[in-house]
Design a protein around this nucleic acid. Sequence first.
DNA 1: TTTGGTGTGGTCTGGA
DNA 2: TCCAGACCACACC
Length: 813
Amino acid sequence: MVEKIFLLDVDYEVEKDSGVVLLFGKNKDGKKILVKKEFQTYFFVLPFKGREEELYKKIEKLMEKHTTVTNIDFVEKKVGKEKRKLIKISMKDPRRIKDVRDEIKNLEEVENTFEYNIPFYKRFLIDYGIKPCQWIEIEGELVDENKDGFDLVFKATKINQTEEYFEPELKIISLDTEWVEVDEREKLIMISLSTKNWRKVFALTQWEGKQDFVESCSSEEKMIKRFVETIKEEKPDILVTYNGDLFDFLKLKQKAKSLRIKLDLVSKDKDLEFVRRGKESAARIFGIVHIDLYQFIESILSPNLKTEVLSLDEVAKELIGEGKKDLEYQEMSDLWRERKELSRIAEYSMWDAYLTYELSKIILPQIFSISRLVGEIPFDVCRYSYSQLVEAFLIRKAVEDGLVIPNSPKSEEKETRMRELPYRGAIVVEPKKGIHENIAVLDFRSLYPTIIVTHNISPETLNCTHEECKIRNSVPETRYHFCTKEEGFISKNLKTLIERRRFLKERMKLLDKKSVEYKILDNEQYATKIISNAMYGYFAFVGARWYKRECAESTAAFGRHYISKVLEFAHKEGFEIIYGDTDSIFIRKKVENLEEEALRFSELVNESLPGIIELEFRGVYNSGIFVAREKGEVGAKKRYALIDKEGKLEIRGFEVVRRDWCKLAKEVQRKVLEFVLKDKDPEKAIGYVREVIKDLKDRRVRLEDLIIYEQITKPLSKYEQIGPHVKAAMKARERGIIITVGSIIGFVITKGVGSISDRAMPADFVSRDDYDVDYYVNNQVIPAALRVLKALGYTEDDITGKKVEGLGKFFKG
DNA sequence: TTTGGTGTGGTCTGGA
DNA sequence: TCCAGACCACACC
């Protein structure tokens, strides 16, 4: 029998001491399918040169007592740059791999062992060349129907990847729970589910409201049971949560445990379990993919988000344009205790589930795309960091290319790597202070990735023995060079990524941005971009299997080389250099048509650039401002604002874009920038700032505009210096709020005595009368405004009006 | 278990 | 009380 399934998840079980891979998916008829496939895992032993046979015989003898070992044979693979003879030890029981290896690894003929810690199900995917979120074809027999929540269960004899990857209709349900504290005990009061056609709230109450999506439950136990029943009936493929790993499922599990009931969402002998995935433990459900959107947003998406906090509310606002229903936790608790406005709580809870579902419509396709690219299951992908994604991608490629996968560094090795001194990075040109009109901006398209490809930068191509390569491909300012005769492993595979991305981008140009096809390509393009851009940093990452600092160092050195050349050339061509950072230059020239001139310049540069390195003309801006550093007169790097022809501001580095400044100060600064760059009227800005200060003094400012957000980056006890955010976090913790590493704390500086830190209070416990006017005037609003206005010669006195009114204006003309 | 280096600026801390 | 340097967070690329 042959069946095609869209592969969603992979796991394994051990049956009679043999590993069996379990594949979960969906077929074209929308049936949920489980496929079982026997599979043997293995690892490699690298004998010292010349002692291969000797070791082989020794191992053969040693393994006689291990019935799990089924095969011992020689294979040839590249270990680093060298082709070597390895001994492959295959076995039935994946759990035994550790102790079998332990018995071998210390034999005197053994140089090293490899690939002993590749998880069983990943080993299977890699060896079969199967990537999740695509269609696979299986051959085998149907062994069960309607078993354990699956419509069809197969035992497969053959499995193949197909090229198709259109997505079938998947059943996705989002989950959200609400809890309140009653008599010092956490009570589960609502479980909300949302999906394409319906929404449901299980509520712990006698329901009298009108909302028909609410179902009353008389106890927490009944709620959980109804939830479990519903999932069993609906048989979703995917359950999405927003922080389900650390919150919803964690709490549900604890609650279920204390009530002595099961969270068997699929079948009765498979309880929800927590598995370790990196630092956290992840909630895993047999037969349903649990995607925790928060995990993915935090590690992968957050650098691209503008929001200060990664709350569901803020993230949803940014990505889908809808925020949460207004209801503070405290208010909800109070309402619940008093049994008032329950429908409001239900509405709120349901809405959370709805937002989570809506978010998943955007984010799941991205996760799927990455999944296809790096070949890992979505469950893992959504919990991975950049380095893990890169590594997953490389592991696949290594096996395809016949390389042994290097081992992960042991903690000792990591310590050594960490102790190495940092290497030189990019060039940042000191900007010319002041306001400039007509600025042309050019930058290198993906500078570091294109350097890696063009110069064949890879761990094994470093410092080859060819004299010729030393001359033809040596790294500026270093003693390194890279081989030009043989393509490097990383450079080669990065090249395919870049080519793929360029191809996708071209195709996208021909499509309607709203079309489904465009979105598919856009997601794939995004996936390739993530991996490409992370490759450089990965070289110097202490936890990397393919760690090679010299490669990162060389990439940066070439970067400096190319940007310097362009700066030099621009200067020679009569351009004035305003600024430049790593891969970009901001230039100016008094000509009729700067656009044309800059474009010509970039074309000229490109003629002389090797390989796929390319300078791109970004555009001409009407004007831009570069300010001085706080200390000293020199221009500040990484802080500027540009305004384009449409009057759109592009702001970098300024307080406006930082979360550790209050909204009020940031808004003031944005307005000041607008007055200066758009209206070209700094006097208006001064007037505006004065008004804001008056509002502050009159306490007419909303408290939320005064909140400063900062992250807690280590355990509170480890801080040597107790800054405002740490003090505020301590105060929050005293009031029962959980503060962990990574928490972002919002605080307000209140009036009173003591240092700023002493007066920093968690925002939730402050009222409008408490804020410290002086602090917000002198340490927030004025510095933010002045940062810009100083560039025009204004001083603090011009804002506060300490000097005679109008004097500042008089002198500034 | 957190891809890298470069850079700015606020607040605290401890010695003069 | 003042100030330099350390610590810390966050931005840029």
